[in-house]
């Protein structure tokens, strides 16, 4: 369990989550992939905290979890609103604001 392996694992997980954000069309799955990207960054923070022998990384993880919870609440409220207005939660149907 060396630091390189943990950074590599976090990088791979971030890349997989970003594939979901970039290429899926369902709004719920895009949000799930966003949470997974934040989780990959949390793993990197905790491993850096272990190898640097400071608590700062774990405090940052608590802040990230707080912001992620607030962000998920607002994002799901937006999903509900979009579903009530459009009847779909697919990204390609939301073109009204596109220039």
């Amino acid at each position: 369990m060396s630091y390189q392996m943990l950074v590599l694992l976090s990088f791979v997980l971030f890349a997989i989550g970003m594939v979901g954000v970039a290429m899926r069309r369902n709004l719920i799955i895009v949000l799930v992939s966003l949470e997974l990207m934040l989780n990959a960054v949390n793993i990197l923070f905790v491993s850096a905290s272990r190898y640097l022998h400071t608590m700062d990384g774990q405090i940052f993880v608590i802040m990230v979890i707080t912001i992620a919870a607030a962000e998920t609440a607002i994002a799901l409220a937006l999903v509900v609103k979009v579903f009530k207005m459009v009847g779909m939660v697919k990204i390609d149907d939301l073109k009204k604001l596109k220039w």
Partner: peptide, 16 residues
């Protein structure tokens, strides 16, 4: 962070 959580609650209620 506590303030951001409060804003999140208000925002979610206002949206729906």
């Amino acid at each position: 962070a506590s303030f951001v959580l409060l804003v999140g609650v208000f925002g979610a209620i206002t949206f729906v």
